[in-house]
Amino acid sequence: MSKPILATASLAGCFGCHMSLLDIDERILELIELVDFNKSPINDIKKFTRPCDIGLIEGGCCNNDNVHVLKDFRKHCKILVSVGECAIMGGLPALRNGLPVSDCLEEAYLNGPSTKDENPEGIMPNDVELPILLDKVYPCHEVVKMDYYLPGCPPDAELLWGALTALIKGNELELPYEVIKYD
């Protein structure tokens, strides 16, 4: 039987959840025995080359590229997992949800302490190659159907390991008290 295929992505996140995955330490050797990786920043495969079994999504959707990548993952993965607070509820990027996008851009490029003297022409990045910011940051499950949720900022390595092995081996996930944390 071939090994299950794992793909991962970081959307509007900080890569902290991917770092936490590395916190499984030497079990990473066990993990590569259990799964094959496809599209993921860990192996730098940029495009899906085959259908996958499990997709881990870090970060919510703050721009149209995030939405594109998330929909691509939904299309290619049988099981999609929201990993971390940002994927689950927008996280820190969603702190901007009470502000108009124009306010955020003006603060970042025109009026912020590090830009107000350095950008006299008032240039705002608007290249066609750049993703467009959404009106607010959306949790992943408000964009596509997500199958499972692993909270934490970042999720505990034990939670990630427990969830991955449970999914791969088809066991029920055990959730001891100390692995569910939102910070």
Binding site: L92, L95, C153, I180, K181, Y182, D183
Partner: peptide
């Protein structure tokens, strides 16, 4: 707007503690 990662009360918050007790994942 309960952004636990940036809240000073996180870890000692009763709302969060109850969510942990009832294993709220989302």
């Amino acid at each position: 707007n309960h952004f636990c990662p940036s809240c000073e009360k996180s870890g000692s918050c009763e709302l969060q503690a109850l969510a942990y007790k009832y294993k709220m994942l989302v």
